[in-house]
Each structure stands twice: as C-alpha cells, then as structure tokens.
Design a binder for these strands. Sequence first.
DNA 1: ATATAATTCTAACGAACGTTAGATAAAAGG
DNA 2: CCTTTTATCTAACGTTCGTTAGAATTATAT
Lengths: 186, 186
Amino acid sequence: MIDKDLKERIKEVAVEHFNSNGYHGTTIRNIAKDVNCSLPMIYYYYRNKKELFDEIIKKEFFNLIKRQASLLRMDNVIDFYTKFVYDLNFLSSYDKQVYRLGIKVYLSFDGDEELKGLMDEWEKTILPRHYQILKPYLKNVENEIAVVRTLVHLLETMIENIVVKNRYMPEKEIREELAIVLRDCE
Amino acid sequence: MIDKDLKERIKEVAVEHFNSNGYHGTTIRNIAKDVNCSLPMIYYYYRNKKELFDEIIKKEFFNLIKRQASLLRMDNVIDFYTKFVYDLNFLSSYDKQVYRLGIKVYLSFDGDEELKGLMDEWEKTILPRHYQILKPYLKNVENEIAVVRTLVHLLETMIENIVVKNRYMPEKEIREELAIVLRDCE
DNA sequence: ATATAATTCTAACGAACGTTAGATAAAAGG
DNA sequence: CCTTTTATCTAACGTTCGTTAGAATTATAT
C-alpha cells in the first residue's frame, strides 16, 4: 500500500467536507467515496461522525493554534506581529482548513456546546497573552488596554481574511494596519 | 386569526433555525413544528427549502445592511462611527439573527455560490464608501487608504462581536478603539 | 345560496442518512 | 502451518429527510 495511514487520510478528507458543507451537510458516505474506502472503514477508526468532528477540533485545531502561538518571539513589535500574520498566508492547505473550521466553531457556526466551551476558554487567554507581550513596549501609550484590545481585534480580522476568506494579504498591508494601531509602541 | 401573517412567521422561525443549525441542519419539519402549522404549509408559501433560505439572505439581510448603511450621517467622525456600531447592540433579535446569518454566508460558512457572489459584490462597495465618508477628515493623515482599510477591518470585528458572538459592547470600548485608528482625523 | 378560490390538512413516496451485522481477506505470531 | 488479530468489505436496518398528491376546510365573490 502506497497510501498514507488510512485513519489520517480519513481525517484529512473529513476536514475538507466539514469545511465545505458543515457538520450536517457532511455525510460519511461522501467522505468514504473521496477517501476511496468503504463506508464502514470510517466506523472502524472513529466511533461515529461526532467523534470524527470532535477530534479535528480538539486535537488538530488546538494543536495548530498552540503551535502558532508558540512562534511569538520579538525584537521590534510591529515586525513581529507582521510576520506572525503574514506567515498564515503560507500555511498548508490542511492547516488552513483546520484553522477555518476552528473559527467556524469559535463563532458558533458549527459544533456543539462542548466545543464552544473549549473555544471560550481559549478566548479568555488571548487578551492577557498579548498584553504580556506588548507590556514592555507600552510605556508611552495612554490607554494600554484599549491598544491591546484593538490590536487583538485587528489580528482577528486579518486572520479571518487569510484563513476564512482564503485571501492573500501582502506584507505591506499587514504592516501598515498594525503600524496604525501600534504607532506609539517602543 | 390573532396570528401575524403566517408566511412572515415561517420566515422568522426559519431564521432562528438556519442560525442555530445551519442550512443542512435545519429541517422543514422542525420549522413547521415551531410555527405550529402543518409541514406542507411551508411549501404553500415557499417553493422549497432553498428558496426560503435565499429569500432571507436576498431580501432580509440585504435590506438590513442597506438600512444600516443609510444611517451614516456625521459631524464628528468618531462620534459617528461609535454610534453606528453601538446601535447594533440594540437591534431586534430578528434583525440580529438575519445579520448573523448574512455574515455566515459572507464567510462562506453557509449558502451557495450564488449568494456568495452577491456578498462579494457588496463587499466591493464597502471600502470606497467609507473612503468617501472619511475623505474630508483625512487631510493630515499620511496613508489614507491604510487608515480606511484598518477602520473597515476594525468595524468588521466589532460587528462580529455584537452580532455573531452576541456580546454587548459598551460605547466606551467602541470609542476607544475607533479613536486609536482615527486619531489623526479632523 | 352557490360556485370559485385560497388555505390548511393527513398521508405517503422515494431518497439519503448514520449506523451495524456479519462475512471475507490480509497480516502477524507461535 | 495453523491460529489469532487486524483490516476491509457487501448488504442491510431503521430513521429522517425534502417533497408531493389529494382531500378537507375556510373565505370570497357572484
């Protein structure tokens, strides 16, 4: 068999389907067809449809954003955030789709209450984390918290642009927008 | 009959269901149950499920955002945008859900290619419109276009916060964030 | 009052869904 | 080589879905 691990391939195809058609619009039969395996094979590796969806969010998505968050290093704070956003353009198609699916759940457009709860937990950590990052650079800034909040909001839209709408954002545009919000930093 | 127009009530319930469960997760039977009418009545007023969904986006959503866009008057540009966003907090539950559903389609999380096309058309008008609004106030601003783009991005996140995540945003927070982006205006 | 049109219903059709039973084939272990 | 485990399949079950046929009821108009 030249195939990658079948379980892995099922998950990859499932990501595509959940992304394009949502949880309810995705059928196990269609996944099986695209994976080129029989329908019960999916039940061989995953207890049911919900477990398949949950594994994508719980493992793949949260791994991805933790991986992304760990990339945060900096000297110049604008350089740093620019690179952070710009690099999203070059995520693998799989990672982008996992990210997109996660945002869909984050916005309560899919998934169940349990997954939404996990998202809310994660969300609570966002602002403090960026505040920690920015703190040393916010000396001559008036309303620190507002700047951090605005930055986070701006990041959210840019991430959505690249990952959800699947648009390429040039580095110049990213830098320009970040510079407007962070102009008094450092 | 004390009821509101049945056709209207069907649409209202449909908005709730499409919002909570997505297009594929919504069933005509459940809508009928909540409307308290028999299942074929829905087919009496709407050709099929898709036409019902389409009418919500094409009529309700686009009417709503045109109504919102027409509210744009101004003296102080920050006051003006602050009010624009802040008032979203007080949209009726129905309007909020229509708005939310529209954003879901806008992000390609639901709906078909045709509806997405309409969204893309609308999206193209957003930047020029705000540029027109801001132009008189952008005299002493360096990179005009970048400011307008950043503003539009920030508006997008705040709208999403209020309408999609259904969070209340206090006027103070809205004003603070807008002031950071628009601080050199006028 | 009666005929016509507008609403509403019960009942069902065929298709597609999630899921499982149970058989078969392939691989691994002794 | 035989046994046991792992991987895969065909076929089906019961449910629910979108949709429609066709009858019953109500309102409107003549």
